[in-house]
């Protein structure tokens, strides 16, 4: 069997899986990407970021009150919760059509104390948007 055939038949797929998983692992360690998503096989490692709470202008944001189309908004919501960064935050801000001149968007993450069986939340992401200007 030629080397090229052998390589494609037996190594191309495992190399692809390893590359995608390694890239996802790198991104989870260096950005806010959730370990649960992106092909890294990190399910159950963290509390799923879908459990995080979004606060807009000091009020907990209720996702069933979205003004945009449900399909697009659900993706926008998940992209923001599972991979919080400038782009996903901006997409989220644009989808909520905030009426105020300044909009402060925060993400709070659950923190569990296993020994005491208690839970609180900590701020893990924050971004301030000012209307008609570049966000800070």
């Amino acid at each position: 069997m030629k080397f090229k055939t052998k390589f494609i038949a037996f190594f191309s797929l495992p190399i692809l899986v390893v590359l995608v998983a390694s890239l996802q692992l790198y991104r989870t360690e260096t950005t806010n990407l959730s370990r649960w998503k992106g092909g890294g096989f990190g399910m159950y490692t963290d509390i799923n970021e879908a459990q995080n709470v979004v606060v807009v202008n000091n009020e907990v944001f209720k996702f069933n009150a979205l003004t945009g189309g449900d399909f697009i908004s659900h993706e926008t919501k998940l992209n923001f919760l599972l991979n919080a960064n400038n782009k996903t935050a901006t997409d989220f801000y644009q989808s909520i059509k905030s009426p105020t001149d300044t909009t402060n968007i925060q993400i709070y993450q659950p923190v569990v104390d296993v020994k005491k069986n208690t839970m609180t939340y900590k701020l893990v992401y924050e971004k301030l948007f000012i209307k008609d200007k570049s966000s800070r």
Partner: peptide, 11 residues
């Protein structure tokens, strides 16, 4: 979060 047991406890 996993190694401390937090994620499993939460679930």
């Amino acid at each position: 979060t996993f190694m401390s047991g937090s994620s499993l406890a939460y679930m």
